[in-house]
Design a protein around this nucleic acid. Structure first.
Lengths: 141, 141
DNA sequence: TGCTTCCTCGAAAGTGCCTTCTTGCGCCAA
DNA sequence: TTGGCGCAAGAAGGCACTTTCGAGGAAGCA
């Protein structure tokens, strides 16, 4: 893993979350900021199956609101992962699709997803164990 | 990508972030919640090189505070990715190491990191293009 | 006893994400 | 004109992350 994050956090004093730095950001941190939010991988996963119109996408991504879908798509579009095409239909519809870059991201996300699925039980067991020990004030494992 | 997130978001009414759901969570969303924060991948990356004591880790992860390092390590430990060992030294020191599970996560993270590094220029170019177009109110690409 | 090192954590302040609610634009039909 | 569809975005409220600050426990030593 190439992690070179010499300026993830600004030296500006003050409390609170530092704004996402656009320059000199560690690549993987950058990507995680993009796909680490609540909805992006779900949207990307759905689009991986083919171009989809807004409302169809909203139906497929269970639980997402119009607002969050709009915002999420805008963010993905900004990073070049998704393309937006206004269809000359009546009423006008908008179709979203993964770009070539977006499709290339599916590989790594599939790998991570595979790992996550395979190890979810272990992670959960660990949490339960940890929470149980924390309750007993044993301070660590 | 196996994305089955039927209850990422609770049906409890109200504004604000839903708490991370522990049960029935989509595996990859779960993992992204874990490693998607500001510091975790940096810490994991450093620990991948070998067990490290707290203060050494603090020096290596540039910019992290004691507080954030402590919190981050606790979270990683809870998920079973990191183990914590109190050394019988004077003064007492604590050593952190990746568990077997933690080490297994390095593979997928390396893949993602490779992708991120390879595509960072494209992503940035896209952002600049997008921001420029947004300024022109062209509404999409 | 006071001091040092190492590490942990509570409190307060600030930020950005996420949610709900609502409005509004374009287009068309009644 | 009103209403509907499709889509986008502003506003307000809440939450968790992140930061800074400071206190404190454990162990040992002078």
């Amino acid at each position: 893993m190439d992690v070179t994050d010499s300026s993830s956090h600004s030296s500006e004093s003050g409390r609170g979350r530092p704004g996402a730095r656009q320059e000199y950001k560690c690549p993987i941190r950058d990507v995680l900021d993009r796909v680490g939010d609540a909805w992006s991988v779900l949207v990307v996963s759905n689009l991986a199956e083919g171009p989809t119109r807004f409302n169809e996408l909203k139906r497929r991504v269970e639980g997402i609101s119009q607002r969050m879908l709009t915002v999420t798509l805008r963010h993905l579009e900004r990073d070049g992962l998704v393309s937006r095409t206004v269809l000359p239909t009546t009423p006008p519809q908008v179709e979203y699709a993964l770009t070539e870059l977006g499709h290339s991201l599916c590989g790594p996300l599939d790998v991570l997803s595979g790992w996550a699925t395979a190890n979810q039980p272990l992670i959960r067991a660990s949490r339960e164990r940890y929470d149980g020990e924390a309750g007993e004030l044993t301070g660590g494992e």
